[in-house]
Nucleic acid binder design. Structure first.
Length: 437
RNA sequence: GUGGGAAUAGCUCAACUGGCAGAGCACCGGACUGUGGCUCCGACGGUUGCGGGUUCGAUUCCCGUUUCCCACCCCA
């Protein structure tokens, strides 16, 4: 048997109803904040992620699905079409997107979206990372992503945008009925701050790193910021004494962060400061945040994001400050309180054809009712009435409509409420109204 | 990539120390040919994840492998 490959999965009904519920709610909330949809390709030039996400990140260094595309022309017969193409293989290096922001910023640059002022964009779709699967983590997973990006003259670097985005997220989680979320907030400053902080951190680690766990010794070399992620109890007293990024923020960054907090407080969004919150992608600046949820095990981050004021320039574009987030849709669906059954749209009526020659009559009635925007399921004239009832009950239909010889002759049909058992004869023209009532 | 656990019917799970692979639910049919849910009866359903080894005999023991789950790493 051929099975879905490791880390991928089929989403089946009724669970897909939950996904539709989440996506419809998200679109609805985004609309209220004047965000518009953008759809970018699910594969891009490898270089985009190397430069955007960062060569040193785990994502780029070991988790991407990357392959070499076939060359347009054989290198034996002619020069490669693409100047950038590898001379030997001829093909361009392509990668399945591991995250959405880089592609959106690429589109921003490619289509000169700064001409439109401030862009508020969202994107829903699959991402791909080759990690070891576990609960809430898949190799093909889905993100709901939104970005605010534009020239600084359009206000893209304003703390008001950070606060607006965070308030929107709180609204979305509330609308979905997700209780018990926690917003953790930090500022990772601008590149200068980070540089100074990194130096101070390395210096502070030097005398103590020998006493720390093996992971921390490795982090101290590769990415000192990640030392703050350590959960080993013995290391905590040491980590407590390390310098914090908050001590290295320059005046503009400090003011920016203060303003974000003030607005959030004013609009009543609860948050907690976490100066150990560091993010794994190189492009983050200033505001960094995570919404966590208890019921997700080790993968407790339901969404995360932050500001990326230098990303456009890193990709060869003009200055374009921005802020965005990615929701792990798989994890969001897992933390929903509703059952799949409860969000599933059940048929209003099951049309039961009864007896030879009734399929046509039933189809005609079903067509009329569907044109009235009712959800209609349709049986088969070969079914005995008992079987039609069972099928209607299983489908969760509200009514069953019997289409037999007697009914057709009278042009009035037996309509039975499956829950109450009440049955009435209804003329053809009044069916839709009666069912909807 | 590292460590641990698991895998038996569509689903949830049994099968004593290595001795005929089972149950409940679901599904299909009948009791009941135009009135469902309840009840009763019957039928269907299996390469015991896959491959090898030990043995007279393997779901059971051993080795390998795949996948899932848990944790690490990291992230959404």
């Amino acid at each position: 048997m051929i099975k879905a490959v490791r880390g991928t999965r089929d989403l089946l009904p009724p669970e897909t109803a939950m996904w539709n519920f989440v996506e419809e709610t998200a679109r609805d909330v985004f609309r209220a904040y004047n965000f518009q949809e953008i759809r970018t390709p699910i594969f891009e030039s490898t270089e985009l992620f190397a430069r955007g996400v960062g060569e040193e990140t785990d994502i780029v260094a070991k988790e991407m699905y990357t392959w070499e595309d076939r060359s347009r022309k054989s290198p034996l017969t002619d020069a490669p079409h693409e100047a950038a193409a590898d001379v030997l293989g001829g093909g361009q290096s392509l990668t399945l997107r591991p995250e959405a922001t880089a592609g959106i910023v690429r589109a921003y640059i490619e289509h000169k979206l700064w001409d439109r002022g401030l862009n508020k964009l969202y994107c829903i779709g699959p991402m791909f990372r080759r990690e070891r699967p576990q609960k809430g983590r898949y190799r093909q997973f889905y993100q709901i992503d939104a970005e605010i990006i534009g020239p600084a003259s359009a206000g893209s670097d304003s703390p008001a945008r950070d606060a607006e985005l965070l308030e929107m997220l709180a609204t979305l989680l509330d609308r979905l009925g997700i209780a018990g979320w926690n917003l953790e907030l930090n500022s990772v400053g601008c590149p200068n701050d980070r540089e100074a902080f990194n130096q101070a951190l390395r210096k502070a680690l030097e005398p103590v790193v020998g006493q720390m766990c093996a992971d921390c010794q490795r982090r101290a070399v590769t990415n000192p910021l990640r030392v703050f992620d350590c959960k080993v109890p013995a290391d905590q007293p040491i980590i407590e004494k390390l310098p914090r990024i908050s001590q290295f923020l320059d005046e503009p960054c400090r003011r920016h962060f203060d303003e974000v907090q003030q607005i959030l407080t004013k609009v009543g969004i609860p948050f907690s400061l976490n100066d150990r919150l560091v993010r794994g992608l190189d492009y983050y600046t200033r505001t960094a945040f995570e919404f966590t949820h208890g019921a997700l095990g080790a993968q407790n981050a339901i969404l995360g994001g932050g500001r990326y004021d230098g990303l456009s320039e890193a990709l060869g574009g003009p200055p374009a400050p921005g802020i965005g987030f990615a929701i792990g849709e798989d994890r969001l669906v897992m933390s929903l309180p509703q059952s799949a059954e409860s969000v599933l749209k059940k048929p209003d009526v099951y049309v039961a054809a009864l007896g030879t020659g009734m399929n046509g009559e039933a189809a005609r009635l079903a067509r009329e009712l569907r044109r009235e925007n009712l959800v209609v399921d349709l049986g088969d004239e070969g079914f005995r009435l008992k079987k039609s009832f069972e099928a209607a009950t299983r489908a969760g239909a509200k009514y069953i409509l019997i289409v037999g010889e007697n009914e057709v002759k009278a042009d009035a049909f037996a309509l039975k409420n499956l829950a109450s058992g009440e049955q009435v004869s209804v003329p053809r023209g009044e069916l839709a109204q009666k069912i909807r009532a």
